[in-house]
Write a protein that binds this DNA or RNA. Structure first.
Length: 499
RNA sequence: CGGGGUGUAGCGCAGUCUGGUAGCGCGCGUCGUUCGGGACGACGAGGCCGGAGGUUCGAAUCCUCUCACCCCGACCA
């Protein structure tokens, strides 16, 4: 029965197979994009909404985003960034202020043209002709222009700089093809906008922020990343330099989940962010912008997940330790109390623990835990309770890691165990990534690599991107230069397929 | 916007060619037996067959028109 359900969701005859049974079908090897969708569904993180291109983030997925917000927000506050909030709607003319910026975003903007609805001729509602806006508003695809306007007001003197602002918000980019978390029309992010007195300050800030993101990816998401600069054609519209962190997914494709931009004086000019300098002269500010989105969640799924579902990086996991009471009879209140006491002890240590006291069957609770990627699962039955013990299992290793220890030992070691899981996830991801980066000498070899359907990144001399052949190969295999890692000073570039 | 496809129960699908009044699996509910890594049985609830016209005694099925969504391409965090 079980085999039929899993292998045979389409109701067709099940093929005979020796493959080990997995909670997720298809497996990563069968169909990576299909696997990705199935993991999100199995872990109950998000689903498509009836609004085209927009997703519903379900409580378990949103809890993950809330943790990202919580920890990253603390990091930027340490960097003297202040949170604020700016309008969702931006006058259309603002976008036009920066030439390259318009070109980059104009073709994916949603436009608000009316402010009232009325009864249409065939019933239903239509925008009222009399309520047409003189100047249409766009829904923000990003907020450089509207924040620039405020900055222009707030900055008068060099003493007002640096000014560092951030907002956690939603943005909208009318995307053709969408995928949960990775590319949706509306998505959540933080966008930081800083203004400085000098070019050097701005450049240093843009670099500092990309490292802040990369450190966050490595220390919280357990995702190893390449830190580097984007090539000219991959740059943010209107930026002088764009820096990014690039991660490798398990199918060898690249995912950029956060970027920072050195905007030079481009936006200061268009928004007139001027100040009186130390010598009394009027000067334009130097600005940066930097953002990280819900896309990172897609990255965590594709970097850590396996054929049994999600694997949450411990420091961001909505639930770090799930306690499952294994009950013989209908309901064992003593056992539930015992579990609850354990939960309280773990919470006192600052850990996110939960007890599954639902009426679901024990094996279903366990698989639920597995699919949701809870880092540590604790099982407690009558035997353990009698002996003051518990059994715990690591999600990243599975049942081979099952161990029975005393409650005290577990409580005292839980934080360390979570750290070990984090390190193991990071090491596993880094090993995979390092084994899938290939140094290649010519564009022809790049073409051969992808023609052979090999998986990973090609590292080449940046100069090769000037060759005519590159344009053809790039198109043929839908490749992009991902970034020029800092350690090569622009001399090398990573090429890959990407999300 | 080009090229392909799909709309039937909460989800996944069959039925359409050859019209006859709705079916399967999962899920869901009740009861019983189970219960330390995905249980099983019995009973049960659940559908304007995407929408609008037409043909017909009769349409999920045939015809016309629509609407929506999905996949593949150009753009992107």
């Amino acid at each position: 029965m079980r085999r039929k359900t899993l292998r045979n969701p389409m109701n067709n005859p099940a093929p005979k197979s020796n493959k080990p049974q997995t909670a997720i079908t298809p497996t990563r090897a069968d169909d990576f994009p299909g696997w990705y969708q199935a993991v999100i569904k199995a872990a109950d993180m998000a689903e498509n909404s009836s609004v085209r291109g927009c997703m519903v983030i379900k409580p378990y997925g949103f809890a993950l985003w809330e943790n990202i917000q919580k920890y990253f927000d603390a990091i930027i506050k340490e960097l003297d960034v202040q949170n604020a909030y700016f309008p969702l709607l931006i006058p259309m003319s603002y976008l036009a202020k920066e030439a390259e910026h318009v070109e980059g975003f104009a073709k994916e903007c949603a436009v608000v043209t009316h402010h009232r609805l009325e009864q249409g001729p065939n019933g239903g509602l239509i925008p009222a002709e009399s309520a047409k806006l003189e100047e249409p508003l766009i829904i923000r695809p990003t907020s450089e222009t509207i924040i620039g306007e405020s900055m222009a007001k707030w900055v008068q003197s060099y003493r007002d700089l640096p000014l560092k602002l951030n907002q956690w918000c939603n943005v909208l980019r009318w995307e053709m093809r969408t995928r949960l978390f990775l590319r949706t029309a509306e998505f959540l992010w933080q966008e930081g906008h800083n203004a400085f007195e000098t070019y050097d300050d701005a450049k240093e800030d843009a670099l500092k922020m990309v490292h802040a993101y990369a450190d966050f990816a490595e220390q919280y998401m357990a995702i190893p990343v390449f830190r580097g600069e984007k090539t000219e054609d991959e740059r943010f519209p209107g930026a002088i330099n764009t820096y990014a962190m690039e991660a490798m997914m398990q199918d060898g494709k690249a995912l950029q989940a956060a970027t920072s931009h050195n905007l030079g004086q481009n936006f200061a000019h268009s928004s007139e962010i001027k100040f009186q300098g130390r010598e009394g002269k009027e000067e334009f500010a130097w600005t940066t912008s930097w953002g990280m989105s819900t896309r990172t969640i897609g990255g965590m799924i594709m970097v850590h997940g396996d054929d049994d579902g999600m694997i949450m990086p411990p420091r961001l996991a909505p639930v770090q330790i799930q306690i499952i009471p294994v009950m013989k009879d209908d309901r064992d209140q003593a056992l539930l109390d015992y579990c609850d006491a354990l939960k309280k002890q773990l919470k006192a240590k600052g850990l996110r623990a939960a007890v599954d006291s639902s009426e679901a069957r024990t094996p279903d609770k366990m698989w639920g835990c597995v699919k949701k990627g809870v880092p540590i699962r604790v099982e407690i039955g009558g035997r353990e309770m009698a002996e003051g013990k518990l059994t715990h299992v690591r999600r990243d290793i599975g049942k081979d890691s099952k161990a029975t220890v005393s409650v005290d030992e577990f409580v005292n070691g839980a934080e360390k165990l979570l750290a070990e899981i984090h390190d193991a996830l990071f090491a596993r991801a880094k090993k995979f990534r390092d084994e899938h980066v290939f140094e290649v000498k010519t564009i022809k070899e790049v073409a051969e690599f992808f023609a052979a359907e090999k998986v990973g990144f090609c590292k080449v001399d940046t100069a090769l991107l000037q060759e005519k052949e590159w344009e053809t190969v790039k198109k043929e295999y839908s490749l992009t230069p991902r970034c020029m890692p800092f350690e090569f000073n622009g001399a090398k570039v990573l090429i890959a397929k990407s999300y």
